[in-house]
């Protein structure tokens, strides 16, 4: 029996998080592809750190497959996620019997280059190795910030073909018997990079105006000492 745990590693939690939508999409694809999914649970790791929660750590341990989605924060994992994964590693180290857990990681960044997620995937891989978990492969997703704005575009459309294929690879990997390495995927929506950048810049200014700010206000340097 496969117990799936979908872990949302975004500090935004469920609200406004691309990671939550990515997990929703993967879950849907795994269903369609007829995976071995039998029992599904979700976990959004709390943003607050400093005080551990054994119920969370047990939930992580009592699963056979993790699908972990997170945003890229300053090149690697968000701080709160690093804290929780270290808590889990310490918890697991103390266990007399360590059962196998297969791990898939999906990291999204706002930059158009999906490959900027590579080091975050390497961190996850090392975390798995040190914790005795079975790292399967990762997906680095570029242009991740507007994932929610573009969520209306079906995954089956040409624009999202690369993304869909990477999600399907998880299903394929779960179904195959051998443990050969799939390799990581670096994907993004098919959208011109220059347009994405221009729209992004307009978008920031538009959102700032909604807060009563002018474009020049965005360049403030309030921390500079005289």
């Amino acid at each position: 029996m496969n117990r799936f745990l979908y872990i949302n590693g975004s500090p935004r939690g469920e609200k406004g998080s691309s990671s939550a939508l990515i997990l929703e999409d993967i879950r849907e694809i795994l269903k369609q592809e007829g995976g071995t999914e039998e029992q599904v649970q979700s976990l959004t790791l709390p943003r607050k750190t400093g005080s551990s929660d054994s119920a969370i750590l047990k939930k992580m341990e009592e699963s056979d497959v993790w699908i972990l989605a997170l945003p890229l924060y300053i090149d690697v994992l968000p701080g709160h996620l690093t804290w929780w994964l270290r808590e889990y590693q310490t918890f697991r180290e103390a266990l007399p019997d360590k059962k196998n857990i297969r791990v898939y990681g999906v990291v999204n960044c706002g930059f158009p280059e999906a490959v900027q997620n590579a080091d975050a995937l390497r961190v996850l891989k090392l975390f798995c190795r040190k914790s005795g978990l079975e790292w399967r492969f990762g997906i680095g997703l570029g242009m991740g910030e507007p994932y929610k704005q573009m969520h209306g575009i079906p995954l089956q459309s040409g624009m999202k073909k690369e993304i869909l294929n990477s999600y399907k690879a998880i299903a394929a990997d779960l179904q195959k018997k051998d443990t050969s390495d799939f390799g990581d995927f670096y994907v993004r929506i098919r959208y011109p990079k220059f347009l994405y950048k221009i729209q992004g810049a307009f978008g920031w200014v538009f959102r700032a105006r909604q807060n009563g700010l002018k474009k020049r206000d965005l360049y403030a340097r309030p921390l500079l000492e005289a």
Partner: peptide, 9 residues
Amino acid sequence: WGAYSPQLK
């Protein structure tokens, strides 16, 4: 894991 400690991150 080759990157920052939680506090520094």
